[in-house]
C-alpha cells in the first residue's frame, strides 16, 4: 500500500478573497485565491480545498466564476464547499471544475443528500465536512474521551462553527460513511487558527472509526504538526491554511521535511 500522505492547502474564501480566522472568527485578508491556488499547485500540493465561508445566496455566481478560474490554473484535485445544500448546487460546482463537493450543514440538515450525491456523481465526489468541538458537559450516551483529568465528547457544529447540534462526531462519522461519503474532512473547532497542532485525540478517534479516507484540519502552525498527526494517527491527509498563505512555509519544503522524517509523500 503505497498511497502517499496528502498535503492539502485550504483556501477559505469570503467576498472573492482568501481569508483566515481564529476559532472560525476574527477574519483577516490573506490574498487572491487564483494566485494562491496556482502557486500551491506548482509547489506540489497534492490537492486543494476551497471553502466559501460566506456561502450566501448572492455570492453564488461569484463563487462559480472563481471556482472555474481556479480550476483553470491547477492540475491537481480540487474540492469545493461552503453552503452546499441541494443537488443542483453541488452539480453547479462540479460543472464549474471542482472534482469533489464538500457538504457540512447541508448534510446534517438532510443526510439523504449524501446518498443522492453518491448515486449521481459517485462516492469519490462526496466529501462530508465535520466541524467538531470538545464538549465537557453531560455526556450520556456519547463517546467520551479524556485529556489528563478532563473528560469530554466531540460535538458536531454547523453553520461555520456557530451552532451546536448535540450530535456525537464519532456517531455522525459512522453514519455519513454508511450513507455514502467518500471522504471526511475533519476540522477541530478548538484547534482552528490556534497554530498549536491538530487535535490528535479527535483525529485518531475518527480514523479508527471509519474506513473512508480522513483529512485532518484545524491547528496546523508548523510542519512539525503535520509530522505529529501522521505519526500519531493513521490519517490520510493533512490540511493547512495560514502556514502556506503567509509564506511562512512553502508546500514543497514542508513535504521535503516530512520525507526526511519518513513520511511517504509525493515529491
Amino acid at each position: 500500500m503505497t498511497l502517499t500522505k496528502r498535503i492539502i492547502p485550504c483556501l477559505d474564501v469570503a467576498n472573492g478573497r482568501v481569508v483566515k480566522g481564529l476559532h472560525f472568527e476574527s477574519i483577516k485578508d490573506a490574498g487572491d485565491p487564483v494566485l494562491l491556488a496556482e502557486k500551491y499547485s506548482r509547489e506540489g500540493a497534492d490537492e486543494l480545498v476551497f471553502l466559501d465561508i460566506t456561502a450566501s445566496q448572492e455570492q453564488r455566481e461569484t463563487i462559480r466564476s472563481l471556482v472555474s478560474k481556479v480550476a483553470q490554473v491547477i492540475d491537481i484535485p480540487f474540492t469545493v464547499g461552503g453552503g452546499v445544500k441541494t443537488l443542483q448546487h453541488a452539480r453547479d460546482i462540479l460543472l464549474c471544475g471542482a472534482d469533489k463537493v464538500a457538504i457540512n450543514t447541508g448534510a446534517v440538515k438532510n443526510p439523504e443528500i449524501i446518498t443522492e450525491l453518491m448515486n449521481l456523481f459517485g462516492k469519490q465526489c462526496v466529501v462530508v465536512a465535520i466541524d467538531a468541538k470538545r464538549n465537557y458537559d453531560s455526556a450520556k450516551g456519547k463517546n467520551v474521551f479524556s485529556d489528563g483529568s478532563k473528560k469530554f465528547w466531540f460535538e458536531v457544529f454547523i453553520y461555520g462553527g456557530k451552532k451546536e447540534t448535540g450530535m456525537d462526531a464519532i456517531e455522525w462519522a459512522k453514519k455519513v460513511q454508511r450513507l455514502g461519503a467518500g471522504e471526511i474532512l475533519l476540522t477541530s473547532i478548538d484547534k482552528d487558527g490556534t497554530k498549536d497542532g491538530y487535535d490528535i485525540i479527535l483525529t485518531k478517534a475518527i480514523v479508527e472509526t471509519v474506513s473512508t479516507p480522513v483529512i485532518a484540519s484545524g491547528g496546523c502552525g508548523e510542519p512539525l504538526h503535520m509530522l505529529d498527526v501522521f505519526k500519531k494517527t493513521d490519517v490520510d491527509a493533512a490540511l493547512a491554511a495560514s502556514i502556506f498563505h503567509y509564506e511562512t512555509h512553502s508546500v514543497d519544503r514542508v513535504k521535503e521535511y516530512l520525507k526526511e522524517n519518513n513520511v511517504d509523500v509525493r515529491l
Binding site: 500500500m1 503505497t2 498511497l3 502517499t4 496528502r6 497534492d46 462516492k123 469519490q124 467518500g182 471522504e183 474506513s211 473512508t212 479516507p213 490520510d236 491527509a237 509525493r266
Partner: peptide
Amino acid sequence: PNKFKIPHMGWNN
C-alpha cells in the same frame, strides 16, 4: 476488496 480503504484515493506510483 473491502479490506482496503475504498475508494483508492490519492497519489500512487
